[in-house]
Nucleic acid binder design. Structure first.
Lengths: 168, 168
DNA sequence: TTGTATTTTCAAAAGGTTCTGAAAATTCAA
DNA sequence: TTGAATTTTCAGAACCTTTTGAAAATACAA
């Protein structure tokens, strides 16, 4: 298989994968394109390679920057801006976990905590509801702390934890 | 806060949370509704509580059954079918991980393995690409095995691993 | 400054997903 | 069987998200 074809397939699949995870397909594709690109690419080049409009390229590249998965760069002698992706997959994963935790898990925890406190528990059903909220809170807290540890830890974390399990 | 209002807020938020994770909002809401419901509900009741059509209720309840998050039940003397959700949040999480792993991680792993083998590595860029695929594969495998362990393990896993980290 | 290259914005269009509701199919008590 | 209750299906409508592309804004060399 030619390199170009392999890259295209990877970009396509990564886009599909992303869209299953609530990430806009084009954003995931742009990320994949930059991940497998040896050199920084200009907005123009991203437009051409993905067959998308200028506006679309601009919007999705900025979203990637917002997620801290891509950085702007300058090339001496060039006026254009160029874009480079973080290529270390562990760093990428940690960054994604960090952002999603902040954007999603925290609001959820706040909501649960609030409902747990505010709800009237006069009926049996009320007590059941409160119990469910307490379990959810316990779960969210455990997940939160574990993910924090993962984000703070070095790239070996997953392997280490894996080895521990293997040797049990 | 009245129990009904608390339930409504929970259902709404759970729907939002789900839609950020690529799950149809209504499906997540139906799941939430059944999670906080003390009794099995009929399709009719789900329609009423969520203000959705018969077809929509049917489709999403079946999707929940397909994900093994909800089961059909019968109530003596009633002809209708009723629906109950798995209420143990650890079981729910394990089930979701299991399904998504199967539906998403496995195809991704296959694709990467294929590209890694098939790609021509005559150029430096080709070598770079292959290296990236190898890193991705390594990562996917580590994630896969760790998630398998998590799915197979009992509900204490997260707490145990948490304690280990705490005591380091 | 001025003029050109480049980036950003955003209203409208396109595309995709979800929902509705009525008709068809199924189930089951009698 | 029959027929009423219940569930399923699916084409079209509604809704939501993404994309386009041209105009406005910005950056910068001269």
């Amino acid at each position: 298989m030619k390199l170009d074809e392999a890259k295209k397939r990877f970009i396509g699949e990564w886009g599909t994968f992303g869209s299953q995870w609530g990430v806009n397909r084009t954003m995931a594709q742009a990320h994949a394109l930059l991940m497998v690109s040896a050199k920084p690419l200009s907005a123009e080049e991203v437009m051409e390679q993905l067959n998308i409009s200028r506006g679309n390229a601009n919007m999705n590249l900025r979203a990637l920057i917002d997620w801290a998965l891509v950085k702007k760069t300058h090339i001496p002698g060039e006026r254009k801006e160029f874009f480079v992706a973080e290529k270390n997959i562990w760093k990428v994963t940690r960054q994604v976990i960090k952002e999603r935790k902040r954007r999603e898990l925290e609001p959820l925890k706040n909501m649960i905590a609030e409902l747990k406190v505010d709800v009237e528990v006069d009926s049996d059903e009320g007590k059941e509801f409160k119990k469910m909220m307490e379990e959810l809170e316990q779960f969210a807290t455990a997940a939160d702390t574990t993910l924090d540890r993962l984000v703070e830890s070095d790239r070996q974390w997953l392997f280490n934890s894996l080895l521990k399990f293997m040797s049990k």
